[in-house]
Design a binder for these strands. Structure first.
Lengths: 201, 201
DNA sequence: ATAATAAAATACCGATTGGTACAAAAATGT
DNA sequence: ACATTTTTGTACCAATCGGTATTTTATTAT
């Protein structure tokens, strides 16, 4: 059991993890532009100085939210890309998944933050840039794996393919979040990414 | 000459066209999210009630700005699409133009308004939907003209092609506005739209 | 002159924003 | 009992948001 250090002072009761979970969900379904520190405090049932002590300010909060979202939502979604499926089949699965109804808020918080870099603090902006590059690298690696398997169009530079995949997936998520018809969004993305598949001839 | 109606009351001095021009430029380079009625009044050198008399409120202002932008920037840009160029050549020209440095604020105000439908009033939102459909129709007509000329991939439904062109052009404008490398944006779009061109074989 | 009318700006409204000074509360040490 | 330390919340700050009641200004009609 824990040694019970018998610290002086009022015992800590603020649950950082719970606040972060509430904040992440809030930013996710209301959108980063419509959510503020006041509303987060109200939803989490804590005072504003409490939130500032824990996260240092709005920038620190959104940066922490982004990290939390990345760790709990984005990174797990990369798992399947490393599995032993064909590139074309996996691509189709991703597009179907992105345009399907899920039990979570519509759209992707990371995509929303990327397309609304306004009123996001410098710390959050820097984090976005780092994670965006990491995301492109994952897609590029996925494409390169398809390359050695001969499952993709070898005429496309892997770096450009990673960039294209990132852009198109982000576009799909934005269109879905805007309420566009899901099947139209999916078909449009299928067309846009057909260039990555080997020629039909 | 005008009959000089000798109206009673203080003569009108507010220049609606000039205010609209100032407001449009302001929304264009600052972004619809960062610009408000107070700042527009300051830049135009008029009082707030004056702006409210002229446009009825923020929603009326942004709707008028959108109309002005559409008439002076967007619609003229449709002109070349009706010219006697090949579909592939024209497409390449559009992408080059979108990713080139121009003497106007970066990005497209219409694209910015579309991707930030938040905090835009109902009148402006309705206008956006109408103009978006009009834009897709223009692209679809362009594709259909290429179809009868045998210059495009006949396997693609024209409606889907119009949707794809609209989506990809908007994506290009957003990426440019975000400061992404122009050549990377252009090459990525070229790949995404290659599906509309006839097969190489 | 003076009344009537129309168009303008001054000066305000309540709500909300991100951020903080300061005091109350809850534990331990003496 | 009382001081010390740590954590928390109350109550405030100035700035900004969209919007408006009211007054001033400038003109014509009488």
């Amino acid at each position: 059991m824990t040694p019970l250090p018998k610290r002086r002072g009022r015992p800590k009761t603020l649950d950082r993890a719970r606040i972060l979970a509430v904040a992440t969900e809030s930013y996710w379904d209301e959108g980063p532009a419509s959510m503020g520190v006041n509303e987060v405090c109200r939803r989490a049932g804590i005072s504003k100085p409490g939130l500032y002590r824990e996260f240092g300010g709005e920038d620190g909060l959104t940066a922490a939210v982004l990290d939390h979202y990345w760790a709990t939502v984005i990174r797990p979604s990369f798992q399947p890309l490393a599995a032993e499926h064909s590139f074309a089949g996996m691509l189709d699965g991703v597009l179907t998944w992105l345009t399907s109804e899920r039990g979570v808020p519509a759209g992707c918080l990371f995509a929303k933050m990327r397309s609304a870099p306004v009123n996001l603090g410098p710390e959050t902006a820097a984090r976005i840039a780092v994670l965006r590059d990491e995301m492109r690298a994952v897609y590029q690696a996925w494409f390169e794996r398809g390359l050695v398997q001969g499952e993709v169009n070898a005429a496309v530079e892997p770096e450009l393919a990673g960039y294209l995949l990132d852009t198109q997936f982000k576009t799909v998520q934005m269109l879905v979040a805007e309420g566009e018809p899901h099947d139209l969004v999916r078909e449009q993305a299928r067309l846009a990414l057909a260039c990555l598949l080997p020629s039909e001839q």
